[in-house]
Nucleic acid binder design. Structure first.
Length: 728
DNA sequence: AGCACGCCGACT
DNA sequence: GTCGGCGTGCTC
């Protein structure tokens, strides 16, 4: 292409900040940039990495126009990925620059990985004096391979200074070792899967889908333990055989290390890993090698969706119903939905897998937009647990306790059989509310007015909403009474205390996300449980997620009703999913197992669905319920986050939004009572839920709010939690 | 999002 | 007299 050398070439560059369009930069003489090139550009007082975008550069005054400082030696970000960024930005009403920022999360990856300095034995060379240590080194190195200093020292069993001494004498020459792949390439035919007839049928259908260059969405719906993973691995194999890259999204991948091993068993190598807990160096290598196409399969958290794949050909979303797929800060998106969008843009298949699909995925399947494949039997020797409710009105716990005698009795039996029990309570800490018995004072968060949760182990009162914490006082701050503070209700710490009282000799472990020692410690504890080093596990919802506890034969749900009455339109659905997942932990090894739900509402549809195992009826009912309530078939909810400088101002906006809403809509302002105000960076935020908005209404309605309404001084952010399928 | 600039309270 | 809090505004 010939260019007029007198005119400066100007290109748009997406910079990682909330700009609603790319900025224009001049291309320096001789620089080669194409759309997708990653560049370093001056931005105000600093320099940032940006992506050259499409189209001609916008007009800027010559005074503002600054040149690109550097074009990184890095594969350009592909067209599909750029369209994806544009789409996500438009859909989530986020500035595209902020979406692009999610792509640029590995700063050091834009420069090629520097080769490692290695050393090689120089043929015929020898040291002045031979020693035993030197001889061992030469023995190892004589093969003429390149070694790293540390590697050679380790292999020869000597210290690095021995090697250094030999190098100084010219025995070794310095060579560059090219950067190694971060993972070995997976081999789709490494280990043939052993599948049941049921699984084989499902796998065959998925292979068909994944072997084609066409956008399809398949819902793989199978009870826990039915071998969904093995089945979708066959789709992964088919995509790999087609020469495509594959993305497997997994919620909380940092905790599901066992998944990587299962993958390795099938494909002979681990997948590339991607999550926020990854060491920076590893992160950069994965990013780079995904962009270069060296990494063929990534298993990652939701942010992996924004990796710069060059030839993505399949996305699997495991546990597609999991709320962890929602990002609820900065750019608001649901990774499951955006995966579908990514597949549409890239014209490739998407597989959504879950034992307890979301309502919207089920509706999409019912309406024929998704194909649904059902796996109804548990795999191999895994047996479904017997499930029953414990009516807490009839079998109440002893005074001051929370465990029904029925449950304690079963725990006793399980312990006697040397098997494991899991007690599940979705509440961290010791007690969710603390009050003064003298004056009735309740401890409340000063920032967001929700109750402070006592964490006895840490000796603190913690706000689970905004993270505020304070030491637990001895005296009531209101009336000054000493030793009259009383903990109300249970958290996992308190349940563990009760378990210790009943079973002082059992090995009890408490698992919750706020555990001291972080993810690393959690992984260790999970390993220990898998090895049978614990008898009783008391845990929050993180125990529901994909871990295999082979000796687990009793699952007790402490408060199965928790979460049913919180006003969330998804309460029943969420509770069903959680209870199904957690009771599914039992009986993986084929031993007879039991799941018990402590409830005050044994006749509630959720409890009935869990106990009878009739998920179909539950879904039908929930979907019907939505229809009867005049809500759209699949949980189309949109939330609006209003930021304002003061609480009064935010309330004013809430009123204005209510007035601006079309009459057919209902707007719930989730204020202090339901969803306490969060103080974020000095700004109050409200969340409004807009319900019952039809797709076409919604966009116009939001636009009206953004353009016509009283424009808030802060920002209005909109979270659109609608099935994006209807926008495609 | 960063980062600088700018205007009011407690201290080396 | 300054150091430092965060409110406001700008970035091609």
């Amino acid at each position: 292409m010939r260019e007029d050398s007198s005119a400066k070439r100007v290109v748009p560059v997406m910079v990682p900040m909330p700009a609603d369009r790319p900025y224009s930069y001049a291309v320096p003489e001789g620089a080669r940039v194409v759309p997708g090139s990653i560049v370093r550009v001056p931005l105000g007082p600093r320099e940032v990495a940006g992506i050259v975008w499409d189209g001609p550069g916008g007009e800027v005054s010559a005074k503002k126009l600054r040149p690109i400082s550097e074009v990184f030696d890095c594969p350009p970000v592909g067209e599909e990925v750029r369209r994806f960024v544009d789409w996500v930005a438009a859909y989530t009403l986020s500035p595209p620059g902020m979406v692009a920022r999610m792509l640029l999360r590995a700063p050091a990856a834009f420069d090629p990985e520097p080769p490692i300095e290695g050393m090689r034995f120089v043929d015929g060379a020898g040291p002045d004096r031979m020693t035993a240590a030197r001889a061992r080194v030469l023995e190892m190195a004589r093969d003429g391979q390149a070694w790293t200093r540390a590697g050679l020292a380790h292999a020869a069993g000597v210290s690095a200074s021995v090697i250094e001494g030999l190098r100084e004498q010219g025995v070794f020459e310095t060579v560059a070792i090219p950067p190694q792949p971060v993972v070995a390439p997976p081999d789709p035919s490494y280990a043939g899967a052993e599948l049941t007839a049921d699984q084989e049928r499902a796998a065959e259908r998925l292979r068909e889908k994944a072997g084609a260059n066409a956008f399809t969405v398949t819902l793989l719906d199978g009870v826990t333990g039915s071998g969904k993973t093995e089945v979708y691995f066959e789709a992964v194999a088919a995509a790999l055989e087609r020469g495509k890259q594959v993305l497997i999204l997994i919620p909380e991948i940092a905790l599901t290390q066992a998944f990587l091993e299962r993958f390795q068993d099938r494909f002979g190598a681990k997948p590339g890993e991607w999550h926020s807990d990854l060491a920076p160096r590893k992160r950069e290598r994965v990013w780079r090698q995904v962009a270069e196409g060296q990494v063929r399969v990534v298993a990652g958290a939701r942010s992996a969706l924004f990796l710069p794949f060059r030839e993505l050909g399949l996305i699997v979303v495991d546990e597609e119903h999991d709320p962890a797929y929602k990002q609820e800060d900065r750019v608001f998106y649901n990774a499951r939905d955006m995966a579908v969008v990514r597949g549409h843009i890239g014209n490739f298949p998407v597989v959504l897998a879950s034992a307890t699909p979301s309502l919207e995925s089920r509706v999409n399947a019912n309406q024929g937009r998704y194909e649904r494949i059902v796996l109804s039997a548990r795999f191999a020797d895994a047996a479904l647990p017997d499930l029953a409710t414990i009516d807490m009105r009839k079998a109440p716990p002893e005074r001051g306790g929370f465990l029904s005698p029925v449950l304690i009795d079963q725990m006793k039996k399980t312990l006697a059989r040397k098997e494991q029990s899991l007690l599940f309570l979705n509440r961290r800490g010791y007690a969710p509310l603390t009050l003064c018995r003298v004056c009735g004072h309740r401890f409340q968060c000063p920032d967001c007015s929700s109750w402070l949760v006592e964490h006895r182990f840490r000796g603190q009162l913690v706000c689970h909403h905004c993270g505020h914490n304070e030491p637990r006082p001895e005296a009531c701050p209101e009336c000054g009474a000493l030793d009259h503070l009383v903990a109300c209700g249970p958290g996992v710490e308190r349940i563990a205390e009760e378990v210790d009282r009943h079973f002082p000799d059992a090995r009890t472990i408490v698992l919750s996300s706020d555990m001291l020692g972080g993810v690393k410690r959690l992984r260790l504890e999970l390993d220990a449980i898998a090895k049978g080093e614990a008898d009783i596990i008391v845990g929050t919802q993180l125990v529901a997620k994909g871990h295999n506890f082979p000796a687990m034969t009793l699952v007790g749900v402490i408060d199965a009703d928790l979460g049913l009455a919180n006003g969330d339109p998804r309460a029943a659905e969420r509770t069903f999913q959680l209870l199904a997942q957690v009771t599914g932990r039992a009986g993986r090894s084929g031993r007879k197992s039991l799941g018990l739900l402590q409830t005050y509402q044994p006749d509630h549809p959720v409890m009935r669905a869990i106990v009878t195992g009739d998920a179909e009826a539950f879904y039908e009912r929930e979907i019907g319920e939505r229809e009867r309530a005049g809500l759209p078939p699949f949980g189309r909810l949109a939330g609006i986050i209003v930021s304002a400088a003061t609480r009064q101002e935010a309330e004013g906006h809430a009123r204005a939004l209510r007035r601006a809403a079309p009459r057919s809509d209902t707007i719930d302002v989730l204020g202090p009572a339901e969803a306490p105000l969060a103080l974020v960076a000095g700004r109050h935020r409200f969340r409004l839920l807009v319900q019952g908005t039809r797709r076409c209404d919604l966009q116009g309605y939001l636009r009206a709010l953004l353009t016509a309404g009283p424009r808030p001084r802060g920002s209005i952010r909109v979270q659109v939690d609608i099935d994006p399928q209807s926008f495609l």
